[in-house]
Design a binder for these strands. Structure first.
Lengths: 200, 200
DNA sequence: TGAATCATGTAAACAGTTACATGATTGG
DNA sequence: CCAATCATGTAACTGTTTACATGATTCA
């Protein structure tokens, strides 16, 4: 067992639980909906959370035992035949409290979008004009594909009928995705016509 | 000097220069405009690039010698009185080639926006309704502040008159910033009225 | 007088990814 | 018969941040 630090403290008197990492928070959030194994939680991330937060599967497997060590989840060993035993994780009371703490009290850290596309465009003067145009076109194509997938999810949710209540909060994030990619495509069109006008 | 790995190779025959990190690319980009010291480059990042890519100052100081080791920059020692000598970095021919390679050939990695805000909203069912509303309001306020700063930059550039040619590519990224935060505010308004309608 | 600016960097921690390892079962 | 799915994890590495260290100068 290597260094496990689940507490931070400036002086030994006032020890405070270490803040959750994003992956920890995401997993607690998923567990708050229902228990599951690492494999199953990874699937759920792929299906519903990938646009927002998509840790690698190995990362999920690494984080889950840490959640148990912190007392935020319990592990139940479900024996299986023909496969490794399934480790099913369940949220504890303290886990739910930690999740709520993260959700409600955590500071609103300003986003850092690691987006090399904009960085490239920023240095567009160093590129061949055709390469700049192709860069923006590629970004637009990517946005169109993503938008199409989001629209498909949107239709799925709408098709759920009155049963779609459980998607209430998810739906806001989906709506933001739709807004975002629509805005991106509009901007790309304006940018492209300016670039083509000048260089095309 | 610890392990320095500036080449990756599957077999010794076909060795290929290691791809640039985002920070390396950003610094090469800045150096392509003009030479500067670590301190001065950090300032330029804060002033003009922070919305796109903002490495810590210590990161800048760590990366610059690596650029020299790779042959992408040269260092000139400028003696000073009363302060540490200034290390002025200048882009080399090979550095410019590496930058262009990164700009033009690099794969378009899809963005991963580490944005805990959306994750929180996604798990809004675990929050008190007032906390959800406050979360979205806070995000909207933040967006308004950022938008105001972007608008100020916009006015500055417009005020440059015909001299604003050198901001040609920067301007596209600024325009995207404006679009993005406007879309975000619209979405926040729609979301808030829905939330307030249901819980308020 | 004391905060901000100029100027450099190191050491350690952190949060995550990639690559690797294993192996039965199920579906086309 | 082969690919995909189910199921777990470790080891090594990576890119970046935080905290620390130092000290003169300038400005309010």
């Amino acid at each position: 067992m290597a260094r496990e630090r689940s507490w931070t403290a400036s002086s030994p008197a006032e020890r405070v639980p270490a803040p959750l990492t994003t992956t920890e928070a995401a997993l607690l959030g998923l567990l708050s909906r229902s228990s599951g194994s690492g494999y199953e939680l990874s699937k759920r991330i792929e299906r519903g959370l990938a646009f927002i937060w998509a840790p690698a599967r190995s990362g999920v497997y690494a984080v889950l035992p840490r959640l148990v060590a912190k007392g935020y989840a319990s592990r139940e060993d479900v024996p299986q035949t023909g496969r490794p035993d399934k480790q099913v994780y369940r949220l504890t009371r303290r886990g739910r409290a930690a999740l709520r703490e993260w959700l409600e009290e955590g500071p609103l850290e300003s986003e850092v979008s690691k987006n090399p596309f904009l960085l490239k465009l920023f240095f567009g003067a160093e590129m061949r004009p055709e390469a700049v145009i192709e860069l923006v076109r590629a970004r637009k194509r990517e946005a169109e594909e993503t938008l199409a997938r989001l629209r498909a999810i949107d239709r799925e949710i709408l098709a759920l009928g009155p049963d779609r209540e459980k998607e209430y909060f998810n739906y806001f994030t989906l709506k933001w995705g739709l807004e975002y990619y629509r805005a991106l495509i509009r901007w790309a069109d304006a940018t492209l016509s300016e670039l083509e006008n000048r260089f095309g």
